[in-house]
Design a protein around this nucleic acid. Structure first.
Lengths: 197, 197
DNA sequence: ACGACCATGTAATGAGTTACATGATTTC
DNA sequence: GAAATCATGTAACTCATTACATGGTCGT
């Protein structure tokens, strides 16, 4: 009942081109890093598993130069499994925003701490927007080459839209928090920390 | 080095008000569901662990009515731990978009399949925007009550902005995919599945 | 020679989900 | 009396990260 999605990330990448485990990791870090991640400790065992299931196969040291490596490629069975997965509807995206937790519980600390977190968040996402914006520009020019290129472009476009929304929210939030000041209102908490223990 | 964030979700909720494990689950499902989740199998053991660490404590069956329950409350040590965590900068948000994986690898299946996934995504997020929009409206009216209320409101505002960005992207993506058609261009793939196995 | 990077793996640990088990209470 | 919901928990399992171990190659 639990589906290992990293399995399909590997199948998808190998469907694009054959690859070593090391290179799969690199491609994830470059092309998918904004919406997926995987470590070596996950990739190598998963490759073994996929091979045992007959969804991929490898040839040892296909090249005479460079360090030893295993080049994996997807099998017909693997392609069928990939296609089948691509047709399964997504139920729910797994998002976990630590920044929203820290905001939600933020009244436990000084407003300056919360403002600091928001500022960090804004700066972090300014950088990310910059990175994904560059990708989007680059991919836009080659979007006509193939469906693959078009889809790569659309994932980058997704990043642009979302990071822009993050930044809009962060700016609006900073403005709201800077204009209202509860420490001067009747709701203020002049009280020190008493209660419990 | 690994930080169990669910620990701090529980501490944060107990800092708002004392609660049973069952109620903590309910509060997560209602107030945090758009950016966090936790099951009973995670909550009950974590409560035990937090109590062993002295960050929370409980009284058995504090009420004479209703089923037996343990009401937990945060301790002074717990508050210190919570505050300390709230000050730690967030490094990276953990997001994993299955929809983007399926788009990125989408050239392996018919465009109709991809369009179906995008349509699902749009509909799913229309519903979510609706839900979080209602929360935002409701919270907006009581935002002045306390810092807590203001922060609750801002998390809902975050949801609105992000779901709106999702919808914008989905609509733009649907338009782009419907206007360009690779099956009629020279890049089209009339080839059946040959190669491998 | 040394450091950066290529390349593959395992072991330990932790986080999180799912399924199961139990029983009380409330509502219809 | 049946069904829904309240309430707590455990066991098994999967997913993912981190740390460790090993050794080759390339550039300077």
């Amino acid at each position: 009942m639990k589906e290992n999605k990293t399995k399909y990330v590997i199948l998808g990448l190998l469907n694009h081109e054959k690859c070593s485990g090391y290179n799969i990791k690199k491609r994830i870090d470059i092309a998918l890093s904004k919406f997926w991640s995987a470590g070596f400790g996950q990739i190598y065992p998963t490759l073994k598993q996929l091979e045992a299931e007959g969804l991929i196969r490898h040839c040892d040291s296909c090249y005479d130069f460079g360090p030893e490596r295993k080049i994996y490629q997807i099998t017909g069975t693997g392609r069928v499994a990939l296609k089948k997965w691509l047709e399964i509807p997504v139920i729910k995206e797994e998002v976990r925003y630590e920044i929203l937790l820290k905001l939600f519980f933020g009244a436990a600390v000084d407003e300056q701490v919360v403002l600091g977190q928001i500022a960090d968040f804004r700066q972090r996402n300014e950088r990310l927007l910059c990175e994904v914006g560059a990708m989007e520009q680059q991919l836009k020019s080659i979007v006509h080459l193939s469906r693959d290129h078009q889809y790569f472009y659309l994932t980058a476009l997704f990043g642009c839209k979302v990071y822009q929304a993050y930044l809009e929210w962060a700016e609006e939030t900073e403005n709201i928090l800077k204009q209202v000041d509860f420490t001067r209102s009747e709701c203020g908490e002049e009280k020190g920390d008493k209660e419990n223990d």
